[in-house]
Design a protein around this nucleic acid. Sequence first.
RNA 1: GCCGGAGUGGCGGAAUGGCAGACGCAGGGGACUCAAAAUCCCCCAUCCUACGGGAUAUGAGGGUUCGACUCCCUCCUCCGGCACCA
Length: 849
Amino acid sequence: MTDHSYDPATIEPKWQRVWQERKTFRTPNQPAELAGRPKFYILDMFPYPSGAGLHVGHPEGYTATDVIARMKRMQGFNVLHPMGWDAFGLPAERAAVRESLHPAEITARNVDTFRRQIQRLGFSYDWDREINTSSPDYYRWTQWIFLKLHERGLAYMADVPVNWCPALGTVLANEEVKDGVYVETGDPVERRLMRQWMLRITAYAERLLDDLELVDWPESVKEMQRNWIGRSEGADVVFRLDGRDETFTVFTTRPDTLFGATYCVLAPEHPLVEAITTDAQRDQVRRYVTEAIGTTEVARSDAAKDKTGVFTGAHAVNPVNGERIPIWIADYVLMSYGTGAIMAVPGQDQRDWDFAVAFGLPIIRTVEPPPDFDGQAYLGDGPAINSSFLDGLTIEDAKRRIIDWLEERQLGRRKVQYKLRDWLFSRQRYWGEPFPIVHADDGTVVPLPEDWLPVGLPAIDEYRPTEDGRPPLARAGDDWLRVTLPDGRAATRETNTMPQWAGSCWYYLRFLDPNNQREAWSAEAERYWMPVDLYVGGVEHAVLHLLYARFWHKVLYDCGLVHTVEPFQRLFNQGMVLAYSYRDARGRYYHPSEVEEYEDGRVLAVATGEALTSQVEKMSKSKLNVVNPDEVIDRYGADAMRLYEMFMGPLEVQKPWQMKGVEGVNRFLQRVWRLVVDERSGELNLKLTDAPAGSEPELERALHKTVQKVTEDTATLRMNTAIAQMMIFVNQATASATLPRDITTTFLRLLSPYAPHICEELWQRLDEGDLIAHARWPIHNEALCLDDMVPIVIQVNGKKRDELQVPKDADNATLERLALSSERVAKLLEGRAPRRVIVVAGRLVNIVV
RNA sequence: GCCGGAGUGGCGGAAUGGCAGACGCAGGGGACUCAAAAUCCCCCAUCCUACGGGAUAUGAGGGUUCGACUCCCUCCUCCGGCACCA
């Protein structure tokens, strides 16, 4: 190594300092500065700053957005590209207990680590806009939005069944519970009715579904949201109880099968259960209900398990034919969907069939299955049978007919039902947003006036729930808990806190105007910047975060606070970065440094010589395969790290990290360096000339092709092929006898969004003035992207047999003549006349014989 | 079970109706060097070859087409999501 070779360790901190000192990436926020330029809002899903720090998966998406942000700036856009912290959450609270620190201190420490690691990569975030959801400056506005929701009747309290973990003293989210235990600790979880805050997201179900049409998102994510919302069309049907003056309603998507309803089933929690159960059945029913209510919904909804249930002794009357049918209770009917009651049609529903078989209930087919049908319940189409006035109709026609019939007699009505449920919005935790709500001593729930915000978190000495099961905030003293309202009433503060999703539901709006002390964001900023043009993040947020944020956004739209119906115009999911892990026969994992790989594919443990298996897996501490970005930057530099993240493969797929690949892009950067710098002297490369670009016509063409490809591929997030093209260019430039400066500086501008530090350094050494970050993005010359002579493939019967160089504008007749006169073709034709000749201008000639 | 996505050299991948394997990694050979590293040049899917070339090949099988990694049908494998939602 010579003194003047490429050394990222010196140039990278140097340029990061320059960018920071000059506020190079400050986004304008004065209307005058904004006017006249198009805008581009490009956003990363901001991270939860965990104690573990960054791993190489995080910067993948961040690098992609940074490359685009830098290119867009050079193309003359005002770019909003911010970063912040989703900083409330349970892990910090647990660490706080463990280390006897305040969660805010833990969070601040983690944020510092994340910020330092992110800044080492040279991202062009406007750090003056950094936000932190756990800061009172931020969460006062989260509380403010909650008040908006409350005002509109979208926030309410209800007794709902929740996953209660006695060991932790808190409610857990469904996704934190599996097989009846908390996934992290294995502590048992029970279902309990608790008074909780709920958000009425179901009121927006239809708009959340319909407006998916308006956004440019991956089809898979839209489909996941559609499934989650789960719209189904059908009818509510009213059943009368036999011998009583009461009715109950069922929801069905198959009203056409009503004549085949041979029994009804109520959910164990259904309010009618207690009333209708006969004395003879009471003990059995009570036992069943108690057991069912005790198990979690997750355990209950295991489709594979056998059907269970009990007869109530009561009967209902089928409204279409007056048949008396038994009413059962079974846990396969869920209280939380539809009406909590169903009519069972075993002939057309496999679940009902299974239940009917298990308990010896009758089965009547009402749709004629095809003659060769040998299944059980028949779900396909066919003529209605055993259905009186519906007989012979198709499913669709029968549905229409029966719904009309029911509606005329007021025995039912058309109904759209959603699977989506209201959002359980409170947690019994400390490290979250307090609700801007108090409970007056007279029992009323009172939202606080806006100018009382923020409701800060009180200092308490322990973050666990109280002994009697109240949330940690109940440990606060009366100076926090007790409030005197403006009207003189005394009240106690709400002690639940909001879930972690709350802060991330609107952070993209705070970024517009993060230092605004008077309002959550200014209307002008919102009108200028929204919507987010490109939102990049992991697919793990496909449903919850993205659905919750869309919901809040629509509410804000209804409040007149935002002007777009959807917040995120385009969404892109980057694939996960995986890593090789090494395991021995006993399943013990080995760190890559304890492993030797041989050419023949064998992998051995260095210490013992034992044969190991290698596999590609998700990075995790326990698998000893986590790659730390600091380590990569120490060895190869941030530019190489960025470039490799983009070069690994398509952004959207998951792919393994390979340290050898980083070496490869590092070599590429060294070649770029040597194009400009003479490594021995440190002076400029003697190949550089002031001659015009046209003095190296071949290289000039290569450059313009590169401009075109890099511009296109970067905009469409195909960074891997953009980089491949730049490598091709550099290989040619290295081989070229002279190197016009003009070509060199144009190329550096293309590379600068990907590897900004080295490009700033070389730009300065070439004495181009200002920063390359402020340079204009090059535009390709179409004429120079086409070669004068193009290769034409000659095929015989679709197989390549020859290749000719022909002028690029040769017409079809010329191509055909040239092809037929090819010696190799003549040999293959052996004098036979071609039956047909297909000519594709500029590409190939196919001769068919 | 249902709904998505993907299967291409030793590895990551490229080509979305027109030259399969761009670019990179790994590997082989050579130049430079006292030597090594670095760098530069060449080779590198498989099989056959009289060294001109030929045959085979994109998970498997079929189809459409002058021509298919690409479009259609059937199947296999892997990954992700949902899963008694009436």
